[in-house]
Amino acid sequence: MAKIGIFFGSDTGRTRKVAKYIAKQLGELAADPVNVNKATVDDFLSYDALIIGTPTLGEGELPGIESGAQNESWAEFLPQLDGADMSGKVVAIYGLGDQDKYGNEFCDAMSFLYDTVTTCGATVVGPWPTEGYDFKVSQAVIDGQFVGLALDNDNQANLTDERVNTWLEQIKPALLAA
């Protein structure tokens, strides 16, 4: 079994595309990415190292039926983790947002993933600097850094591959040590 599980929520397919790019970069270290609407909690918890990704929809919402997504997603999956024991698991988070159009909630959905997995006892790795972005506020910023990799494929698509590659080099040691 691959060491690193990759799970994503998506509505338009952009978060899936990043998940596939991450898996390609990690090669045999990572499992094939799985959309959370096709995952079970047991699938999710079977990995000691996880990379999880989400877009931010609407006004800072997780993807899911209530936020207008076409299918169930993180909004329906995260409540199933209530009470799960993720002690000893290492999680890295990435999120997509639009800092120009939604500068008051840029990549907010990452904060919901962060809150859930840390409440379950997981260790989150891979904070990302806020420099190089032009947004007003984000719930995903703690102590001056994003809780994970923030991507803006609407306005900064040309920076995505470089950001992902730099972030993967940063998080890989912790994920492999899990």
Rank of each mutant, 00 (worst) to 15 (best):
77 F>E: 07
76 E>Y: 07
167 W>L: 12
29 L>H: 13
83 G>I: 05
16 R>P: 03
46 S>R: 09
125 V>R: 02
27 G>E: 05
94 Y>S: 01
114 Y>L: 04
154 D>Y: 11
126 G>C: 07
149 L>A: 10
30 A>S: 14
87 S>A: 15
41 V>R: 13
107 C>W: 06
61 E>F: 01
109 A>I: 07
89 K>Q: 14
112 F>T: 04
140 A>K: 08
23 A>V: 09
145 Q>R: 13
33 P>A: 03
10 S>M: 01
169 E>T: 15
69 A>G: 06
2 A>I: 03
32 D>T: 15
134 D>N: 15
104 N>D: 15
23 A>Q: 15
101 K>H: 08
114 Y>S: 06
149 L>D: 12
119 T>V: 04
122 A>W: 05
161 D>R: 12
55 P>N: 05
147 V>W: 03
93 I>V: 13
15 T>L: 02
90 V>L: 01
103 G>C: 02
98 D>M: 08
163 R>T: 05
61 E>S: 06
2 A>M: 10
147 V>L: 06
52 I>F: 01
117 V>H: 03
149 L>K: 09
31 A>K: 04
163 R>N: 14
164 V>L: 05
29 L>C: 10
29 L>M: 13
38 K>R: 02
91 V>G: 05
52 I>Q: 00
151 L>H: 02
33 P>K: 01
147 V>K: 08
48 D>Y: 05
49 A>Y: 14
5 G>A: 09
46 S>G: 10
105 E>A: 12
129 P>R: 08
23 A>P: 12
87 S>C: 07
6 I>W: 00
94 Y>K: 02
20 K>G: 05
88 G>L: 07
123 T>W: 10
175 L>W: 04
111 S>C: 04
178 A>F: 03
99 Q>W: 09
68 G>A: 09
60 G>F: 03
122 A>D: 13
95 G>Y: 04
26 L>D: 01
95 G>S: 07
80 Q>T: 12
39 A>D: 07
127 P>I: 08
36 V>P: 08
137 V>S: 13
83 G>E: 08
135 F>V: 10
112 F>A: 14
43 D>F: 11
65 I>W: 01
128 W>N: 15
121 G>H: 05
170 Q>D: 11
23 A>C: 10
174 A>N: 15
68 G>Y: 00
33 P>H: 01
23 A>M: 08
160 T>D: 15
126 G>A: 03
133 Y>R: 13
55 P>G: 02
20 K>V: 04
31 A>P: 00
101 K>W: 03
30 A>T: 04
35 N>L: 02
26 L>G: 07
165 N>V: 12
80 Q>A: 10
147 V>T: 12
